[in-house]
Amino acid sequence: MSAPVITKVDETPAVTSLRRKDLLGISDMAADEITLVLDTAEAMKEIGSRPIKKVPALRGKTVVNLFFEPSTRTRTSFEIAEKRLSADTLNIAIASSSVVKGETLADTALNLEAMQPDMIVLRHSSSGACHLLSRICRSAIINAGDGMHEHPTQALLDAFTIRERKKRLEGLKVAIVGDLLHSRVLRSNIHLLTKMGADVWVCGPPTLIPTDIRRFGVRATSRVDEAVGDADVIMLLRIQLERMEGAFFPSLREYFNVFGMTEARLRLAKPDVIIMHPGPMNRGVEIASEVADGPYSVILDQVANGVAVRMAVLYLLAGGAEHETAA
């Protein structure tokens, strides 16, 4: 109990804790909180290079991974992050075939709450599912993707990967190309990158550009050369056929011809451009194989960094919200 009286101050950062119980999205996060997550993730990344990749920080904490949508990368990444921090993890995957209504979700959550987990990592096909749980649950809720709304840990790991390569976010030209309409990755990335001062361009077929997208401080175009020209970062988004109800473009082949990232298009960007993709990739649709596997690709770095960023989020939220101390 007795904390050492010796204070160990170094270069003190702007904030030392997140001002929240849950991570629901990037939209309500402040820039200094984002920086804290990224800085903490740098310390966490080193743990992955140790012979024993485990620290006792979250010993005795229980984390439930509640996935209502299929996911390999994100679920595995969270699970590894939890295990590296010594948390007890529980995976619940619920078939996505049935449409899960709010009430059912709430009931599931309340039943889980009765078993007193400390954190719930939730992925759900309905936008706002995490906000619903955050209102009714005592546990910390971490959004692992809700419908077409947000996927905050993906945006944080993207930012971490960009910062690792470019040493900054501010002033970079970031071109995001693909299915803008259905992408929660896009929304979280727009919030994060604009808050951190990046120059964000979004590009896709006119049918897949949300009408109010410019409201978020980004530039939108359907001319891929304009978006990619002089870009520091090109981020490709998956064409989400499973979410498309209707014809948004003539064919996948035509999409590739007009928007697909090829080596020829890559040459329009800065010479040290990096290519990102949140996965899973559709090779030959949004990205050519030689680009995905080429020297500019940091796609596998993104996956590796995902673990470190999720460890940072889990660790920072495990302490609870600061304002609760006073209560």
Partner: peptide
């Protein structure tokens, strides 16, 4: 003392 006090800011983690 990391998780002893259930609520409150987490100590800052730095790189090893």
């Amino acid at each position: 003392d990391l998780m002893r006090n259930a609520v409150g800011p987490q100590p800052l983690v730095r790189r090893t």
